[in-house]
Amino acid sequence: MKKSTAFLIAVILIAAFAGLIYYGVTNSRGTPVKIEKIVTPLAEVPFIAQDIDLAQGISPELWQGIKPQEIKLMYQVTVLPWPKIKAGLGEVTFKAFHNKENIYFYLSWPDNTEDRFHETAVWPDAGAIMFPLEKKAQPHTIMMGFLGRVNIWQWKANQDREYWKNESPQTNAYVDFYYPFEEQELFPVSKHVTKSAVNDLLAIRVGTITPKDNQEVMGKGVWENGVWSIVLKRPLEALEAENGVNFAAGKKLAALAIWNGSQEDRGGRKSISDWVELNIQ
C-alpha cells in the first residue's frame, strides 16, 4: 500500500468520525438539542412594619397586599417507596416579608383533602422550605440537602393540629412505642411534646435529617376550599449561628417541598421545586 493511500484513508476516517461527533453534540434523538436555560424565580421579601400573631390566624388580608411568585413543582421520583402518581402538584404560591425582627413566609397550594392525621397508612399534608447553609450552594437536587448543609423548616398538618388545638399526638400509628406509665414518670419516656407546628431541621446528605437543638420556627396552616395556606415565622437572626440560616439584606436561595398525605406522600416521596432566589430588602 502506498503511503499516500494510507494517508488519504486516515484523513477520510478522521473527518467522518469528527462529523459524527459534531452530529452527536448538536443532535439528540434525531432532533437538534435545545437546552433551556434554567431561570431561577426571584421572590421579593419586602420590609413591612407589621407583625402576625399566629395564635390569631395567618392574616390573609396582610398577605393579599404582597406580590405572589408562582413556583413550579416537580415530583421526586427516585426514593422508595415509589410514588403512586408521577404528576406533580403543579405550582405553589409563594410570598414573604420581614419587619426587621421576624421573617414570614407564605406558601399556598391546592389540595382537595385536608389530611391532618398521621396513623397507620395515613399520612398528613406538609410543606417545607429549605435554605442552604453554605455560601456557595450546590445545584438543587431531588433530595433535600443532598449536596451540602441545609436548614429545613417543615410544617406538618398533624403537628399543626396537635400544637394549635392542643390535641395529643395520634397514638394509632405508634401504639407500640407508648409507655403506659408515662404519667407516673418524672421525665418524659415516650410522650412526644409538640412544641411547634414546624420542625426546624438540619441535613447534610441523604438520611441525615436531624432536629436542631433550638427549635426557632413557628407556623400555622389553614385549609379552606381545597387550598392549603401556611405561614412560617422566625426571628431574622438565628440563635445558632452555625446551624441557623440568617437573613441579611440581599439575595438568598430557598427551595420548597410539598407532601400530599392522601397520595401517600411521606419522607422522600414529595413534590419539590428548584431553587428560588429571595431578594431580602
Binding site: 459524527l20 452530529y23 452527536g24 443532535n27 439528540s28 434523538r29 434525531g30 438539542v33 437546552i35
Partner: peptide, 8 residues
C-alpha cells in the same frame, strides 16, 4: 445508542 442517546 451513544450517538443518538445525546444528553439522556
Amino acid at each position: 445508542s451513544g450517538l443518538i442517546g445525546g444528553f439522556s
